[in-house]
């Protein structure tokens, strides 16, 4: 009987504690900067074009082969009177979020720091009715960075985290 009384006392004592429940859809807990949702492409605000040159490095390194990259000659390159020093630039880019396993490898292999994991709630709340809607294209991948809606964090292997 003593044990049961003690056990009831434990349960009762929790009434005096602060609630730990977070009312999720109403309250979005702040996410740490390291949070990884799905990969996004970053926007170079200085030159007004994506950082991505379409080099295929991420496509080759992806373990589940969920990316498709196509490159083109940059119409804004210096040699044709533009402002950019990127000779090649991304033409089409698809990521199948339904297959992505959020392993961060694409971010690590990119030499141009052009891709980052989405660390906002938008990246987590992605439910759709059709699987096909989870294949996102270049425009969708760039929107958030273009509007400066993510706190870009591109981890370099072995770097400090501050």
């Amino acid at each position: 009987m003593k044990g049961i009384a003690r056990s009831m006392l434990t349960t009762l004592s929790t009434f005096a504690r602060k609630p730990v429940t977070r009312n999720y859809p109403d309250y979005h807990r702040p996410l740490p900067r390291t949070d990884r949702a799905f990969p996004l492409l970053l926007w170079d605000h200085e030159i007004d074009e994506p950082f991505c040159t379409g080099c295929h490095a991420c496509e080759r390194a992806c373990p589940v082969e969920c990316m498709t990259v196509l490159m083109k000659d940059n119409p804004n390159h210096k040699s044709v009177g533009g402002t950019s020093s990127r000779r090649k630039i991304i033409d089409k880019f698809w990521v199948d979020y339904a297959r992505c396993m959020r392993c961060n490898i694409c971010v690590e292999v990119c030499n141009f720091d052009a891709i980052a994991m989405n660390n906002t709630w938008t990246g987590h709340e992605m439910s759709v009715y059709d699987r096909k809607d989870l294949v996102v294209d270049l425009e969708q991948l760039l929107t958030q960075s273009r509007a400066k809606e993510i706190d870009e964090w591109v981890p370099i292997i072995g770097q400090t985290n501050d």
């Binding site: 390291t34 961060n104 981890p155 292997i157 770097q159 400090t160 985290n161 501050d162």
Partner: peptide, 8 residues
Amino acid sequence: GLAWDVPR
């Protein structure tokens, strides 16, 4: 080792 350092 580790992918990146732990937070401060």
